[in-house]
Amino acid sequence: MNPFFTLLARDIRLASRSGGSAFLALSFFALVATLVPLGVGADLRLLARVGGGVLWVGAVLAALLSLDRLFQGDFEDGSLDLIALSPLPLELTALAKMLAHWLSTGAALTLLSPLLALLFNLTPAATLTLFLSLLLGTPAVSAVGAIGASLTLSLKRGGLILPLIILPLLSPAVIFGAGAVSLTLDRLAPGGALGLLAAFSAGAVLLSPFAAAASVRLNLGG
């Protein structure tokens, strides 16, 4: 098997064995979706109105949970040194790790979202838009998140600073993703918003391996 997929498979295996980060992220996501109605009231029209935004914010926060360990575990136990000396370029290492993170969180969150959309009384059309927007947008969360994770990999409490540095960068994803759901609720075509979201995601996935690799390099040299 080629080194890229070797690393990808190993990271997914690690994620599934260390307490199931996908399970934690899904539980957190579902919990946010439960707490918000408790906070804002059970008015179904109001819930439908805010549902897209709440679920988008919830998904981003849930994906953040396991992000700080993306490079940190490998950095602390010396694996990152060995990975850096392997034939796999660090840019592809970062991409493999992003993809592993997305598969074990973003993709799982996307699959769960239609169920949570029911709790928010979203119309079928809006549910479909939400699903598509998460499918297109969560890769950006993993990608931008990987930059943050690589910058904070040497920090014992990197998990505290990580949200502060990446959430502002992710605001466009939330805006376009939740915006697409709003448009659908207003019976307008969400295509434009989804297109912008896809463009943001594609840009993030293309550029962040380089930023993350540069940051890993500087940390190995530190």
Binding site: L14, S18, D74, D81, L82, L85, P87
Partner: peptide, 17 residues
């Protein structure tokens, strides 16, 4: 780097594997 075999201070092993 591609010619190097590395035995570092840390073992680089995962407890779960």
């Amino acid at each position: 780097g591609k010619k190097i075999g590395w035995l570092g201070h840390h073992d680089g092993l995962k407890p779960q594997l």
